[in-house]
Design a protein around this nucleic acid. Structure first.
Lengths: 345, 345
DNA sequence: TTGTATGCGTTATCAT
DNA sequence: ATGATAACGCATACAA
């Protein structure tokens, strides 16, 4: 931890003007001799140009913030990696903010961008209030949203049809012989929660599945712990109440693994007694016991596209907002093996 | 996305000097009337003071970076949350950098702090080269290290005895009747890897465990996927080679859950045939199938302490460097239930 | 090519 | 209490 020399001192040591020193270092017109002297002086002093001053002069922090509700969710980590990769090439630093469930924190964050700490924002909110929408619209720096926005709004966005993702999960379960399917959703007041709820109800009626309200339950959170708690509650609710379930659709992988744990804890075999599906196809799905069938929402791809959208807007600030859509993909694993293996009879 | 007004425009609209405007907003001496006019003008224009200019004038970015190798590791997420919580109160933004396995990236990051993008650094590196140590020593902003540093160096640090953590895991396994214990470590050229290796060998000799080199294997990474691959390899190695194992100590939870998957895939029951322990006590441990016994390294506590250390150094820049140590705690779960339940015979 | 001088937006110092 | 002005560190338009 030492003191930081400035350009003035470098110039003095090199015996040139501060302007020449600046040019020699930034690679403008300067004589070979000057460049040599300045470089040497800079190295000797350990000079590094100050980012703040440079930013003030040039405009642009070369920094972007990525805001999510819960960075503990592997789904967001996948986005993060993709974004970092895309932006890192351009020498843009990524600042990650895990805003938590408090809407106020999210609002503060978005508004704080107006002070000029970053050149852009990529945000993936699970709850979108009118306030947040306004804050995003009024943001002084370009914004890219990963996810839903309820109302159409003039903001670059990349989305995925998670309603369809749930439908795919249900269809897969029906195809592999399941008929009594329960649904563990996340909180209904979130966008993903609402979309997935719609997906389940649509699929259930499409396949003429009989299900009571007892078959649907909401976890308090999109986490494994909440999934475990919800799973336990679901099993308790169903105990001795009519026909037992033979499958569970979980709103994401974390809830899904929690649900499996709940089943196992209750003496239910997965997939023999009950099949379980997740959503997101996070790393944990492939390595869980049993491996979890999941519908990939292409988090990495969405992250990459969001970063590209932001980069594009930097270059063309007044371009019309773009909406990119990616399609979900089903990944079948052992958690949905048919109760009687196909081809056996 | 609108244009950003500056203080000059606010002052003009309010009909006062720029100096008065500044004072009215920052709460210095100003008449009630002036404050009213300026506030009103600022609100009308949507004025927000520019962070860059303020930083340049005042010094201090009110931003701290947290650098880890892999933000996908829940262990670091726990630290992140704690740090964010501690720093957020003081209005300090946290910028997260996932440097990846490339040492060059880490070096670049540390050096980039010298340009003044942040006021401090909290770093938890798994590999520490002499270069990195030098870069940390020479950093112009305060640094706090979570983890090891090999050689003693004048930097604030919080550590945990992970050697002892492995010893605790082994002791627990021995106490619950296991004698043939394998060890799946992470890469040996990392600090955690080296410390845990020492822990296992110490414990093995202390308990007079007979183990061959075939009982020890290193995963390529501290991830679940690498743990799965290493687990498969371990099981293959051991097949038909003398006495079978009855327990696996994994270098962290992710490797641990990967190892369980490998066991299950090979038809081995956990914990009946083989017990498995992890380290870190991450969220996944509690919800895995079976729940994973793990030694907590108190990630949240270490994160909190690191943040406090940094805050302290901000206030007293020349205080002697401090070294805080937290103790590991064993969390027993179903993955190490005794083969024959205790008290049964 | 080189040096002088100005401005980026803010806050602090100094008179008034 | 208020206004003019300097300064933070850098990059550049302009003159030499």
């Amino acid at each position: 931890m030492q003191e930081k020399p400035n350009l003035h001192q470098v110039a003095r040591l090199a015996g040139v003007s501060i302007a020449s020193a600046s040019r020699a270092l930034t690679g403008q017109s300067a004589s070979a001799e000057t460049v040599r002297k300045v470089r040497s002086a800079a190295k000797q002093l350990g000079y590094v140009p100050d980012a703040t001053a440079r930013t003030l002069r040039l405009g642009g922090t070369r920094q972007v913030v990525f805001a999510v509700d819960d960075i503990g969710n592997p789904n967001y980590v996948a986005m993060l990696r993709a974004i970092e990769h895309e932006l890192g090439h351009r020498g843009i630093r990524l600042s990650v903010s895990s805003t938590g469930r408090e809407m106020k924190q999210t609002l503060d964050l978005v508004r704080s961008l107006n002070v000029g700490v970053a050149d852009g924002l990529i945000i993936s909110p699970i709850r979108v209030t009118p306030q947040l929408r306004r804050a995003l619209e009024e943001c002084v720096v370009p914004v890219v949203v990963i996810g839903s926005l309820d109302k159409e709004v003039a903001i670059d966005r990349v989305r995925v049809n998670s309603t369809k993702a749930v439908e795919m999960a249900v269809a897969h379960l029906v195809e592999t012989g399941r008929r009594h399917i329960a649904f563990i959703n996340g909180p209904l007041d979130t966008n993903p929660g609402a979309a997935r709820q719609l997906g389940f109800e649509t699929a259930a009626s499409h396949h003429a599945l009989s299900y009571s309200s007892g078959h649907m339950i909401c976890a308090d959170d999109f986490t494994a712990a909440a999934g475990l708690a919800a799973g336990n509650k679901l099993i308790k609710n169903l105990k001795g109440a009519g026909e037992p379930i033979d499958a569970i659709v979980a709103a994401n992988d974390l809830i899904g693994v929690g649900a499996i744990s709940a089943c196992v804890g209750a003496g239910l075999q997965v997939p023999t007694d009950v099949a379980v599906t997740g959503i997101d196809d996070t790393e944990i799905a492939a390595v869980f016991n049993p491996p979890l069938t999941s519908v990939s929402l292409r988090a990495a791809k969405r992250g990459r596209q969001a970063a590209q959208l932001l980069l594009k807007r930097f270059e063309e600030p007044f371009r019309d907002p773009e909406l990119l859509t990616v399609d979900p993909v089903l990944k079948v694993r052992a958690s949905t093996l048919p109760p009687q293996p196909e081809g056996t009879y």
